[in-house]
């Protein structure tokens, strides 16, 4: 008997003792029905204003937030943000954002996955969660996971209409638009941080030092 059979066998025997022997069929049904219903647990009250709640929570997590009504303005906003902080003006972006007028704003954004030396990474987002000020990113060929991870500055361009109330709503959106989750679903809530030394929070651990959210309708 291999390890799998031994472990599962031990669990089966222990549960047969407590539940009685004839439970297997009903249990399989119970598993299937819970999966089909995937009920929600207790949720926080739905915020009156999703955008306001999202911004408030994102700022609390030390993200920076900028807004524009015109997506073509994104490069100008980003250029100003980077220049004000004396940050490099070149980096990488998701291929889907290659069409924005980066060079007009004085930026050099290569539409490719990030490498170690890239200092700015611009991504989109699948959606965002108002409850905690969190971004939800899906990995994929056109949406590489490294762009939000290796550079010191992560910039996410987000359509404010894609802000949902809670993570449960984000899962529903994922189920509706994709059959199954991609290799990696990454929820990002501000710059990377550590409190391992004397429980003192320090921003910029192994991931980005800063996260800029630019809210712009698609």
């Amino acid at each position: 008997m291999n390890a799998r059979e031994k472990i599962l066998g031990r669990i089966r025997n222990a549960q047969a003792r407590t539940n009685g022997a004839a439970v297997t069929a009903t249990h399989t049904e119970a598993v299937a029905s819970h999966l089909a219903l995937h009920p929600r647990g207790p949720l926080p009250p739905h915020p009156d204003n999703l955008l306001a709640r999202f911004k408030e929570c994102a700022l609390k997590l030390s993200s920076d937030v900028l807004e524009t009504g015109d997506r073509k303005e994104v490069p100008t906003l980003l250029a100003r943000y980077l220049n004000e902080r004396n940050l490099p003006v070149s980096g990488v972006c998701w291929p889907s954002l290659a069409g924005l007028p980066w060079s007009t704003a004085g930026l050099d954004m290569q539409p490719r996955p990030a490498k170690n030396q890239d200092l700015v990474g611009v991504t989109g987002a699948f959606c965002a969660i108002a409850e905690t000020g969190t971004l939800m990113l899906l990995s994929g060929t056109e949406t590489p996971a490294t762009t939000s991870l290796l550079p010191e500055t992560h910039v996410a361009v987000l359509d404010p209409r894609r802000i949902v109330a809670a993570m449960e709503d984000a899962w529903d959106l994922l189920r509706r638009e994709y059959k199954q989750p991609p290799r990696a679903v990454n929820f990002i809530s501000g710059p990377s941080r550590t409190a391992d030394i004397e429980q003192t929070v320090t921003l910029g651990a192994h991931g980005p030092y800063r996260v800029l959210l630019i809210l712009a309708p698609a």
């Binding site: 991609p182 290799r183 679903v185 929820f187 809530s189």
Partner: peptide, 24 residues
């Protein structure tokens, strides 16, 4: 655990990378 509303990263990892993927 740490008094945070959410951790900085929550990663849900499913399967290995596709042939066309650049990372993973």
């Amino acid at each position: 655990a740490t008094g945070q509303s959410i951790t900085n990263y929550v990663s849900v990892l499913t399967g290995n990378k596709n042939k066309e993927d650049h990372d993973g």
